[in-house]
Nucleic acid binder design. Structure first.
Lengths: 136, 136
DNA sequence: GATTCATGCAACATTGAAAGTTACGAATGG
DNA sequence: CCATTCGTAACTTTCAATGTTGCATGAATC
């Protein structure tokens, strides 16, 4: 898989799940479809499970399925569950004895946080259910 | 230096330059102040020169200086000159025989491009001259 | 002109995070 | 009991950013 992989994998997979919510998928199936590895899938989807978006079951008929109706899962839910920010905030490089550095960091961080909030609210406006309608 | 290094280095350096526009700085000086390497500095500032923000001169009294008044250089100018987008667009992974993938990509890209535009217009509102006023 | 200082640039090495892989344990159903 | 599937740890691979070295070029000074 390319870069930015976790979020892309999560969105893609949940998109398909929204299309057939009843179907239970194994990590191996998902990995094959996404062209990646089952362990990677478990790593990524594990975060979504922790966030309450997915349910996983072990054993013979086990696998992954949505934890709630696809209409109730937004792109923002997924974005927040995967800890992979599209907007690189200035990190923690903040402290510095250089006043220019500090002023700069403060100003830029403010803008970035604002932009991030805006991004999230835009993503929150679309559910994964709407995604597959669009693709029909 | 940490991650996100090019943009941070560029902003930091131009911030200082705005403070003392007349002073010509060598790559070595800038590198020492930023805790990095002179070649890295030249690589990064080279982009700003190509974008017309900086002027570099070789030889004995050579070095780097602003190409125009600091009031005329915005944070957006720097952001655009450094080809390091804070907003990771979906790259070129677009083409795929999977309709869910395509619908997803299209939707997310639209939002990201919009957010990117918004970021740039916010950055354009601040000049590097204003940055050092703030730090005074 | 020789020397010195600085950038320009190419080639290589280092680093670090993400992805991929292997291996094994635990749980579930037949 | 056995096949299946997730959970997780440990290790390897990959790749881009950064750092490093070396040398050519240009400009000022002697």
């Amino acid at each position: 898989m390319k870069r930015n992989g976790r979020l892309a994998l999560a969105l893609h997979t949940l998109g398909h799940m929204a299309h057939e919510p009843e179907r239970v998928r194994t990590s191996a199936d998902i990995a094959a479809h996404a062209g990646t590895n089952a362990v990677v899938v478990r790593r990524v989807l594990g975060r979504l499970r922790e966030a309450g978006l997915l349910i996983s079951e072990r054993g013979h008929a086990g696998g992954w399925r949505l934890a709630r109706a696809p209409q109730k899962i937004s792109l923002a839910d997924i974005y927040l569950a995967i800890d992979e920010r599209l907007i690189q905030t200035g990190e923690e490089v903040a402290r510095s004895d250089c006043s220019v550095e500090q002023a700069l960091h403060q100003r830029v961080s403010l803008v970035l946080e604002d932009v991030e909030r805006s991004l999230i609210s835009r993503l929150a406006a679309t559910s994964i259910a709407e995604m597959c309608e669009t693709s029909t």
